[in-house]
């Protein structure tokens, strides 16, 4: 599904240049659940931004579903982000002035959809247990609620690829458990999930892990949870989804 070949990202400052990613090669298959671990500043977020077409590599080839992203126009990249990729950020990235449901509807707005938009947003909110707070301003929610809203937004267009950048980094342990449960559930439903984290126990949720050190990718440093345990986590989420009395 995603293929990186010798991908580098170099940031130029007036005095020096910083290599954030150094000739990274990587294959991510459809239905994969990949964790990319590594210390702060190792280039994890840079890699995720490239995968999500939020940024362009300085050199190397990045293909998504067989298409070289360097050949895409801004409009095509926007469309790809809109239709095929769902982002979950550490800081949630909700528009605080909009309500929960308006935030969740945003990808549908840019997809040009009007009819059935509200219903789909309600379904997505119900999946993450946020339907009851649908009309609250996003800025007033707790960290865990904001992250669940952000996940609902990432899901609404049924994207094939979910990119999560430290999704549990700014929320409490209980909310983190819920968020990881949702990601595991998405994976068990066939979604491709790429999770970036500096936390080894979070990375262990994924089927396989890679480690980034100073912009270079190293193989499988973290032992993933045994398959039955990952499956149990997803099943536990499905058995006890986040309580939402409105559903």
């Amino acid at each position: 599904m995603i293929h990186l070949d010798g991908v580098s990202k170099v940031y130029q400052t007036p005095t020096t240049s910083i290599t954030a990613l150094d000739r990274v090669g990587l294959r991510i298959r459809q239905g994969d659940f990949l964790a990319i671990a590594g210390p702060s500043g190792s280039g994890k977020s840079t890699l995720l931004n490239l995968l999500g077409c939020l940024d362009r590599p300085t050199s190397g080839i990045l293909t998504i579903t067989g298409v070289d992203t360097a050949t895409l126009t801004d409009q095509q990249r926007s469309r790809l982000r809109n239709r095929s990729i769902g982002f979950v950020f550490q800081m949630f990235n909700l528009i605080p002035e909009l309500t929960v449901i308006e935030n969740v509807e945003l990808p549908l707005v840019y997809a040009g959809m009007r009819r059935g938009r509200r219903e789909r947003a309600q379904d997505a909110l119900a999946r993450v247990g946020m339907l009851r707070q649908y009309d609250q301003r996003a800025g007033r929610l707790s960290g865990g609620e904001q992250q669940r809203t952000a996940i609902a937004r990432a899901l609404i267009n049924e994207p094939e690829l979910i990119l999560a950048d430290e999704p549990t980094g700014s929320i409490d342990a209980e909310s983190a458990e819920q968020v990881l449960g949702i990601l595991a559930d998405l994976h068990s439903h066939g979604r491709t999930v790429v999770l970036v984290t500096h936390n080894a126990s979070v990375a262990a949720v994924a089927r396989r892990s890679l480690r980034l050190v100073a912009g270079r990718l190293e193989q499988e440093a973290i032992t993933p949870l045994p398959v039955p345990q990952r499956r149990r986590r997803a099943e536990a989420y499905r058995a006890h989804p986040v309580a939402d009395p409105a559903v």
């Binding site: 939020l54 982002f87 840019y110």
Partner: peptide, 16 residues
């Protein structure tokens, strides 16, 4: 800038 970034991330084009 924050809001623009979010809108771009979820699919807004430059034209939008």
């Amino acid at each position: 800038t924050y809001e623009i970034g979010i809108r771009r991330a979820v699919g807004a084009s430059r034209g939008n």
